[in-house]
Design a protein around this nucleic acid. Structure first.
Length: 290
DNA sequence: CCGCGTACCTGATAGC
DNA sequence: TGCTATCAGGTACGCG
């Protein structure tokens, strides 16, 4: 379940392995994985052949590879996507969707590698965005993430006051703040002692600042640990699992004692997904949007 | 424009 | 044993 820290781990790995490499060929094994590339899988490959990757960028949970033409390959891992850098003779993964092969030997240590997009549930996707090197048009509506200098805390606070919705729903809205998913939303809410249904327009400036601070804190911690995973779905760029679940304070800990006060953690269903919280540290506020 | 519900997808697991 | 139901959840889209 890649959120910002996991995607950043992938970005760093790709930066090491694919920057400077020239694309020799592309194979698309499942058209659904390039469904947002409306011209289709053949066109996806045709547009990439011969181009050189110049960088690896990220905003929130989106990644993109700027190319020497000014175009870019845009990627989203969805629920279960992985971008693996593998030796070409490594057997194909069961859910291999797209393979990108580079010209000649190269990469770190001179070892040859190819880039594989592996995605069990196919919620992720790749697409070529003409002129997308700086900021791909399809993600222009995504807000900066809280680690970007472009992120504006005052604008975020103002947006929360304008909204008539619950705090967790707002944290998951990528047009307000990007990179936060279900897991780190719960962790940040617990750390800042806020309930997920808190009406956003009632938040004080100090409370909003506290929530933002908690978002950065839990994501920084996850990044230091190399990302979160509960199973083999999330694997970093070299195929190594990034386990971090033991550091989670509330997520997935239903009925376990809150590490702050001992009260059993509660699980609520919200937006058709699980929300974990401490009933004592995060009481249901007045005017809650349940 | 805004808030909110739902479709999309596969595999693991639980229950009968 | 084998079937069905449920759960996992990020994003786009459509409805009111």
């Amino acid at each position: 379940m890649p959120e910002l820290p996991e995607v950043e781990v992938v970005r760093r790995g790709l930066e090491q392995w694919v920057v400077g490499r020239t694309i020799a060929g592309v194979s698309v094994y499942n058209p659904r994985s390039v469904r947002r590339h409306t011209a289709g899988g053949a066109d996806f490959g045709d547009r990439l052949r011969g181009l050189t990757v110049t960088a690896v960028r990220r905003r929130g949970k989106y990644l993109w590879l700027p190319l020497d033409t000014g175009d870019a390959v845009l990627a989203h891992l969805g629920m279960s996507g992985q971008l693996l850098v593998q030796p070409p003779d490594r057997p194909d993964e069961k859910h291999l969707r797209v393979r990108i092969v580079f010209t000649g030997p190269g990469g770190a240590g001179g070892a040859d590698r190819e880039l594989r997009f592996v995605d069990q549930r196919t919620f992720g996707h790749l697409m070529v965005v003409p002129g997308g090197a700086e900021l791909p048009a399809p993600i222009a509506h995504i807000a900066p993430d809280p680690f970007e200098s472009a992120f504006d805390p005052d604008a975020f606070a103002a947006a929360l006051r304008r909204r008539r919705t619950g705090l967790k729903r707002a944290l998951l809205d990528q047009s307000l703040i990007s990179g936060v998913g279900n897991i780190y939303a719960d962790e940040a809410l617990w750390l800042s002692r806020q309930h997920w249904a808190r009406a956003t327009e009632t938040l004080t400036a100090a409370e909003t600042a506290g929530v933002l601070d908690s978002v950065r804190t839990v994501m920084s911690a996850a990044l230091r640990e190399g990302g979160t995973s509960f199973d083999s779905l999330y694997v970093n760029v070299n195929g190594e699992s990034g386990y971090f679940d033991r550091s989670l304070r509330v997520y997935g800990r239903r009925d376990e004692p809150c590490v702050r006060c001992g009260t059993p953690i509660r699980r609520d269903v919200f937006m058709n997904r699980s929300s974990f919280s401490c009933p004592t540290c995060q009481p249901v506020p007045e005017g809650a949007r349940l």
